[in-house]
Design a protein around this nucleic acid. Structure first.
Lengths: 125, 125
DNA sequence: CCGTATCCAGGTCGATACTG
DNA sequence: CAGTATCGACCTGGATACGG
């Protein structure tokens, strides 16, 4: 028996909490960029996500800061200088995300052309 | 170093594939119900999800059938009798989901009142 | 450089009514 | 019992322009 079976909907809530943390279009890509552990500047992240607007990046980072996933360090210089990093809480989410990725890798290749979903990544067939 | 760091965005795609499978408002609740491994009828699932409409349940089950997560068995009787079960692929997703749940349990209690999110589950404080 | 404000389009989801 | 059809509300995200 598995845990979800044992407690049924009682596990729904933590899963939804977790998925809420990475919800929205841009949080997961940002986490992947920050997963190196290095601090990165606003505009660096923006360059790595060419399609994102300032507004969406600001909003995503702000929400991830609020949920404790991302740390924000502001240097009081001109021009402004702000760095974002994954917090320990943020890093601890990488492991669960990896198990999602492993499942995806094992299952997405079974159907013919799911790889067409991957416009924005370089994963090989 | 972790895998996400090693391959960066290359893991984004499988994660998004996986999250796409359980995306939408109702697929995760349905998976939790079906996680027992038992086959359940349309109206049974509907009773377990009092807020869902026929249309959303039909649509969710259909999409999960298309993605290979759910099996549909139709008995040709009157009145109609249809049973839904998790496929092997569906069951194999439970483990990764459990690791999301574990992370959620460890982290959602840190902030004061995240439990207020749990209107629909009976998780204790 | 790092944001904010405003407005708008598209998609998801729900309400309601109906059917084999 | 197990669906379908139609319509509309809401909400997320994008475009654009501006500010400290």
């Amino acid at each position: 028996m598995n845990k979800i079976n044992e407690t049924d909907e009682k596990l729904l809530c933590p899963i939804k909490y977790t998925l809420g943390i990475v919800g929205g279009k841009w949080k997961l890509p940002i986490i992947c960029i920050l997963s190196s552990g290095e601090p990165y500047r606003f505009n660096y992240i923006k360059k790595r996500l060419p399609e994102i607007t300032n507004m969406m990046l600001t909003q995503s980072l702000k929400e991830m800061e609020a949920s404790g996933m991302v740390g924000r360090k502001q240097f009081n210089e001109v021009p402004p200088h702000v760095e974002y990093t994954l917090t320990e809480k943020g890093k601890s989410l990488l492991k669960p995300l990896e198990s999602l990725a492993e499942w995806g890798i094992e299952n997405m290749h079974q159907e013919a052309d799911n790889l067409s979903l991957c416009e924005n990544c370089q994963a090989e067939k």
